[in-house]
Amino acid sequence: MPFINKHIIAIDDTHSILNFLRISLEALGARFQGAATASGGLALCESDRPDLVVLDLGLPDKEGLDILPRLKRLDKEGNVPVIVLTVRNSPEDRELAASLGASAYITKPFVMNELVEEIQRQLKLKPAPHLHLIETDIAS
């Protein structure tokens, strides 16, 4: 159970994707919550404080990238891992996502192992040492 006690929220408007994410991540021990809209997802994240967020870009109410900076600031260090999951694969979208703080960028369609490995990597890296250092410096 690699993700035991880890809380993951996925924001994606495709029902079938949320469905298999729920089945697989719960099977791996995570606590999973899904949202189909950007505003719903943001509210859920703000109330439940997940360890990691999986975010789709083309959402019905607004662009996923619009809420990305706020998702990043969910914890004190401002470094909640956000994995972008989208069908868009243009270099511009990737660059924009990276500049807004996306931790990883996976294009659809994908196999579940790919995402699981990325989640593992992101959760181990947390918190990012350099960011932590800067925050401590400012605090001190």
């Binding site: 495709t14 079938s16 298999f20 659809k108 369609p109 579940m112």
Partner: peptide, 11 residues
Amino acid sequence: PLAGIIGALSV
């Protein structure tokens, strides 16, 4: 839809 299929089957 392909993402739904591939994802679900890979799980």
